[in-house]
Design a protein around this nucleic acid. Structure first.
Lengths: 170, 170
DNA sequence: TCGTCATGGGTGACGTGTCACCGACACCCT
DNA sequence: AGGGTGTCGGTGACACGTCACCCATGACGA
């Protein structure tokens, strides 16, 4: 890159806003969630993924793909959540080296009682500001970038599995 | 909230994508930046804010507002960056309890050599996917949400100063 | 049979972020 | 004087995330 072509005025605004707005919204919601329920955003993401899976159980690598997380991050997260009784590990019969993560009763209780509050916050901090056009535009933008990432992804994806990477939270 | 009004199909897609896309883009850029320059995204944000200030120096609280960070986070970040020689603390003559943060020579060197690579990454992972319409839509979306946050902000802003909160990175 | 490589999962150390709390100063009020 | 209250900044403990590395299982070819 000789003479790097810097972002122009509009690109700057778009990029900095992209970061700042996302951080601000996530931050506010995370703080309220933490205060009201004692759950971090990471906790919540794991609980949601599990609660949407049949039986509230998922192989570790499935959870990893669902959340698009790195391997170790998930391991540590599960360890901590296990210590708090929200989930439990179970051995896998089919694959001796595999493991399941299962929602405990406390885990179900936590997610079902947290979800309504969480939706409220998401509406309050985010959707209340948006018209239908905004939502459509956002979906279009997301899909565009996602396609680009999937097609570009060289050696850089966080979840090492280069397959169907979906998303995180409701 | 009796019978919480859950997000509908489109809202779900918009919200989950909002989180997932942002995390994915930030993650890829952060990893490359870290590998190539040894700087974290947080380091980079601080260096950028300082480099844009006259003399490369800013009061701590100004930096806090500029980055929209919590107080303690910034303190710790500055402590670490000071230990690595990227910035330095200086006492403030006007206000005995205040302090300046100043870019060192190593700090200037770090930011000027990192910035071109960073712009490349931002283009590669983000703007290369976008048309002009996307950029406009994103700016519109950002401004809308930002206005909403500023008007709504009850007791929840991260930087305790409820004034002009700007942004982070180029 | 042995090496090697890929996959599923984990550990420990260390850098990063947050929470609760503290110290210093200033201003105001009584 | 004495006591709030607000601002500017910091500390220490602890939770979270990442990096480098390890262990076990199984498939495959020499």
């Amino acid at each position: 890159m000789t003479d790097p072509n810097w972002l122009d005025e509009r690109e700057q605004r778009a990029w900095r806003g992209f970061l700042a707005v996302n951080a601000a919204v996530r931050g506010r919601i995370a703080r309220q969630l933490q205060q009201e329920t004692g759950l971090s955003s990471a906790d919540y993401a794991v609980l949601v993924s599990l609660s949407e899976a049949p039986g509230g159980r998922l192989r570790v690598f499935q959870l990893r793909v669902a959340a698009d997380w790195e391997k170790t991050r998930l391991t540590h997260q599960i360890t901590r959540m296990t210590a708090r009784g929200l989930v439990a590990r179970e051995p896998c019969a089919d694959d001796p080296r595999g493991a399941f993560v299962v929602l405990t009763d406390a885990g179900w209780e936590a997610i079902t009682s947290a979800a309504p509050r969480h939706v409220e916050h998401v509406r309050h901090w985010f959707f209340d500001a948006l018209g239908p056009g905004h939502v459509d535009a956002l979906i279009e933008l997301n899909d565009t970038v996602t396609r680009h990432l999937l097609s570009t992804d060289g050696p850089c994806a966080p979840c090492d599995v280069p397959s169907s990477c979906d998303d995180v939270l409701p």
